[in-house]
Design a protein around this nucleic acid. Structure first.
Lengths: 343, 343
DNA sequence: AGCCGTTCTGGGAGCGCTCCCAGGTGTCGC
DNA sequence: GCGACACCTGGGAGCGCTCCCAGAACGGCT
């Protein structure tokens, strides 16, 4: 069914070689700028490639090199939560950029249903990609275990469910970040410091809650009954804030485990007539660039940079790619506190 | 560098065949469930594949079939706007789902800088994917023109810059949607109806503005000076709303060209002490599931479903994939009005 | 001259798969 | 009984590339 014939035929390396008057081998060397090609030959080949509109057939290439040049970024999220999770969006973009910078293609994979699991494994298994960067924050997620059998290198972003040892992980210092936040509040003289924690099936949320609790205890303050759990969403944060206020009208600070929940908390506090930070100080976590500074008042937030995390993951991946035997490594990235008007 | 030997060797089809005691051809037929394979052979082969942990080498397969099973989704956005554009996020997800449902893999491509352009073209050219779904809303975007030379089928989501004819497009009825919104406001007795338009380098934004203007004229109302342009962001919407209010204190309705901008407008109106919808009615565009109904008050919004758009695009792509000669087709999807408390 | 090393070139093999074709086996109808 | 026509199988070819190896060309040495 080719109405316009001719353009269907993609030129092959052989065609380019013939056009340039050299052999296929020489053409290959010239295009992959190998050593041992004369300047004249190289130029003739490159001109031929340009004239013919040649682009190498990746399938043929990776059949012999056993490399695809593509890296998967797997986002495993049980809900359709990705839609409004700014952290995930930032991860996607960072993944794309970091991989593009080293000439690799990102293949994005969402894996959120049970069928997705087997499809994901099959895809990663199928030699479409050289390696996988995996974000699977939920403890109960079966994906990380399923990936153990994979023949391609895997690097996790954040703790992997049930696999603390034997895998490569790049995580943020969630507990340390929470500690920074709470110490900051304590230093400002706050004494009744609540928290809105994330869902306790996620390591990051667990660690942030633990950091809050330990820091309070270290400061001689009592954390009892001062924690409310939510689901990292705006409305979840708003509801949790209501619950906390109802239990403790004298709350003078709150550490919220994500920016998104903090936006919700702010809304509740506003409706309740509390002034921030005069009546109650708010510190959140993520320091999302489009969220934290844009609030009213701007949020003090624990700063973590997804780009930095992805960068470290890519670095590890590259090492893994030329040395499968690399010892599993758990990297913990430091976080800092971005202080703004909300505290 | 193989500390653990043995598992490095991926089994090939030949291995599976030998293990099952049949020929490579029969094994291939059994796994691709072709006709003309005996039930006995099929079962033996499938068992062998399972036992050996076989998964086909995609490179080899696509070298001969000239199909990769992957479709690119290209998002061309000059700014790092994707971070907070809910429509784009919805498109990504919809793309993944729709393609997964037909057994295709999505390869996501962000293309927002000048280097990205040539890299994107090179990638699409390289035979990594069978086709591309392209979202390039900006009129000045050079990408659509660059893609004309491509040897793979391309379907655009929304109008493609400067290429109204000769390409496959699936768009929403932006002008019709604006008309619905404004007619609704007119019917409710509003007489001073402003608009916050999107950036006028995007077809969607232009069409929505045109729809607003024409409907006002049809109703015998004067649109002069009642439009403010913003950039589809929250803060842009807030500022544009301030500007409109300053110019026309007696505004009794506003049509906002996106949910995100409407959120900003709501904030401004709230700060200005206007009651919604009593003092001023608000109707927006997009009807984003996590945004429009969650506002205070919930937003009346022109409903468009990215999933539906992507579905139509995928459908066209599939037809294109087995008939390159398909006549270029401009599809316009209908939109409806979701009426809520803001109007 | 003769020899060595370096630089460059071309052809052959083969990556793992699908497709085509030749052939083998069984079943039915006359 | 034998052709006709299903059904099923195995081997060969070839997709377009990279890599290996043999060898040519071209110096600069002894």
């Amino acid at each position: 069914m080719g109405p316009r014939a001719g353009d269907e035929e993609r030129p092959t390396l052989e065609d380019v070689a013939a056009f340039a008057g050299v052999s296929r081998s020489t053409a290959s060397r010239a295009l992959n700028d190998d050593a041992y090609v004369s300047a004249a030959a190289r130029e003739k080949v490159q001109a031929a490639a340009r004239d013919l509109g040649y682009s190498p057939n990746q399938a043929a290439r990776s059949l012999v090199t056993r490399r695809t040049g593509a890296i998967a970024v797997v986002l495993s999220e049980p809900e359709a939560r990705l839609l409004d999770d700014p952290y995930r969006t930032a991860v996607m973009r960072a993944g794309y950029r970091e991989l593009a910078d080293i000439g690799r293609q990102m293949v994005l994979i969402f894996s959120d249903t049970r069928e997705d699991l087997s499809r994901t494994v099959r895809f990663l298994e199928g030699g479409h990609v050289d390696g996988a960067l995996v974000f699977a924050p939920h403890r109960s997620d079966p994906l990380p275990k399923a990936l153990r059998l994979l023949r391609i290198p895997v690097v996790f972003g954040g703790q992997a469910a049930g696999l603390r040892r034997g895998v490569h992980v790049v995580d943020f210092d969630n507990e340390g970040g929470a500690r920074l936040a709470v110490e900051h509040l304590v230093a400002a003289g706050r004494r009744k410091i609540g928290t809105i924690a994330g869902p306790q099936d996620q390591s990051a949320a667990i660690d942030r809650l633990a950091g809050w609790r330990k820091t309070l205890l270290d400061a001689g303050l009592d954390p009892a009954d001062l924690a409310a759990e939510a689901d990292f969403t705006l409305s979840g944060g708003a509801n949790a804030m209501s619950a906390l206020l109802a239990r403790h009208a004298d709350l003078d600070a709150v550490f919220v485990a994500s920016d998104m929940m903090a936006v919700g908390a702010l809304r509740t506090l506003d409706a309740a007539g509390r002034r921030i930070p005069e009546d109650i100080a708010v510190v959140s976590f993520d320091d999302n660039a489009t969220l934290a500074p844009a609030m009213d008042p701007p949020l003090t937030s624990v700063h973590q940079d997804p780009r930095e995390q992805v960068h470290a993951m890519v670095e590890t991946m590259l090492q893994l790619l030329d040395d499968q035997g690399l010892k599993p490594r758990q990297q913990v990235l430091p976080v800092s506190l971005a202080i703004r008007a909300s505290s």
